[in-house]
Design a binder for these strands. Sequence first.
DNA 1: ACTAAATCCTAGTAATCCTATAGGATAATG
DNA 2: CATTATCCTATAGGATTACTAGGATTTAGT
Lengths: 135, 135
Amino acid sequence: MLSKKTKYGLKALAYIAKNYSENPVQIGVIAQQENIPHKFLESILLGLKKSGLLGARKGKGGGYYLMVKPSEIKMTDVIRTLEGPIAMLSCVSLNYYEKCDDCPNEDSCSVHKLMVQVRDNTLDIFRNTTLADLV
Amino acid sequence: MLSKKTKYGLKALAYIAKNYSENPVQIGVIAQQENIPHKFLESILLGLKKSGLLGARKGKGGGYYLMVKPSEIKMTDVIRTLEGPIAMLSCVSLNYYEKCDDCPNEDSCSVHKLMVQVRDNTLDIFRNTTLADLV
DNA sequence: ACTAAATCCTAGTAATCCTATAGGATAATG
DNA sequence: CATTATCCTATAGGATTACTAGGATTTAGT
């Protein structure tokens, strides 16, 4: 299950995408419209900014804005930034791979192949969905 | 990401499935062969027994065995028993549905449709994979 | 009956992660 | 220079995870 952080982040990004090519959007506005705790959202957007997905302007009239067009932001990037691995097991993760302590070799692991299959399917969806598709 | 409990449980079930129609398999044997902590595995198998997937015989020569043929045990059942919801958000879960606090209505939620899509895809795999496919 | 082998059951615990919140620093605008 | 906004660090409290301890119970073989 995705964390609330991820869900909130996703909704916030979609909200910002809706206002693309307009003025930056403030935390307070998003928090209110999407029912997200203000301070929590603040820390989430800060993270998204550090990862390069969002830009920000301080002070009056400031807020957050997307660095590139919504149609160029893939779900794979968003989910990985917010949640981390997309795979169900780290031993089948492309970007967050970690060997299992208990498996001597992965090819003989009974669950490995199944989880690769799930990963590829999910990845396929996330790769072909952009922020623009969410709005 | 799946918990270790789920992963261990899955591997243990696959191991037991491999020995289907033979004698019951002991916790100790599985723990050793699959590198799973003995006591932890004990509690996992106990849970699988309570859910009806496994049967057990106590005492000398006892152990765990599958209640039905491996080819009749679907991944959907196994994952739901061990991990809980398959969906990435509880608001799109079929078996563990919960309304989101922050969404006034789900149809207008930007992430809802995407997560339904992922759920359906994953479900499709899990519904068409049985324990027999893992061994 | 006795013993060894196995599951059953209740509890508890240490560590980590999640969901936030507090309080001030910094920067931009008019 | 006041106001509005993000930036940053730190931390609190609760839930979950990944186990472990210790004994009760049941069964099989001698």
